[in-house]
Design a protein around this nucleic acid. Structure first.
Lengths: 148, 148
DNA sequence: CTTTTTGCAAATCATTTGCAACTGA
DNA sequence: TCAGTTGCAAATGATTTGCAAAAAG
């Protein structure tokens, strides 16, 4: 069902190359720069497809949606069961200055279950995002505020 | 600096009445229903003002921003230093069906600190949102899927 | 050839803003 | 009076979608 196209490849490549989270717009721009003239709509479509299939991870920062390759692995062999579950949940630690992103460990699924139970909820998904400054940016910022 | 206007009151009232998170659009609609003809733009402006002043809490679900009165408190006396810190962080449990929202306890600030430390980050803010179905909606949905 | 994918532009959607008319303190 | 506030409509910005042309299998 999924055909292999130049643009799809380019998008995944760009995504992989970038490593961190990027907005569709940014990625589109990057592709332009790289000489790959791909429609913005296609970038969006592809990105969403990746997110839905679970190959990409997404976060919503401010008003935009950012994407990043998930396992950075890639298609391994094949698997018989494909996703019935769309977008996964994420746990990220994002530097608000340089954008560096780190995956973090889940905050005890145990705790999660407890909360859900207590309120009679059935958890479908959850997001946890920590925003702050990474060591480097922290230093830079200190220096900056030091100057007048 | 902040004048008291009919619309501002109506908005806060509607917000308080609703209790849970609402989108600007929803709130605007509600006001219309209540006979209060207030410009959508004004609703947005007011809502943002409330959020900035810390009187309202906000979450981003999907592509919209939802608001809810925060401490139900209000401006205390006056203060010389005005906000350097805009919007706070939240911990919510939201029903994706009826919108019911429950405040939940933080997932161990301890754990948070550990993560931050390990990666050399200085956490500025964080968001944690759990989405799922509350008991009621879960039942309803089961029934529905039961019918063909 | 048949179906998926692309492209582009027009369409949405939520939110913001310009600016003149308005109104509360 | 006069600055903060409102309204409406037009402007934005991100993302989506309609549809015919291009490409993959």
């Amino acid at each position: 069902m999924a055909r292999q196209t130049r643009q799809k490849d380019a998008i995944v490549a760009a995504l992989r190359a970038h490593g961190e989270f990027v907005s569709a717009q940014q990625l589109h721009q990057a592709l332009e720069d790289a000489g790959e003239h791909i429609g913005l709509a296609t970038v969006y479509r592809q990105l969403n497809a990746l997110a839905d299939s679970g190959e990409a991870d997404t976060v919503r920062l401010d008003g935009q949606q950012l994407f990043r390759l998930c396992g950075t692995g890639h298609a391994d062999g094949d698997d018989g069961h494909d996703g019935a579950e769309p977008r996964r949940h994420h746990h990220h630690l994002v530097c608000t200055s340089c954008g560096k992103t780190v995956e973090i460990d889940p905050p005890g699924e145990q705790w999660l279950r407890t909360i859900a139970d207590r309120h009679g909820f059935t958890i479908e998904s959850h997001t946890l995002e920590l925003f702050g400054l990474c060591a480097d940016c922290r230093k830079k910022q200190d220096d900056a505020s030091d100057a007048s």
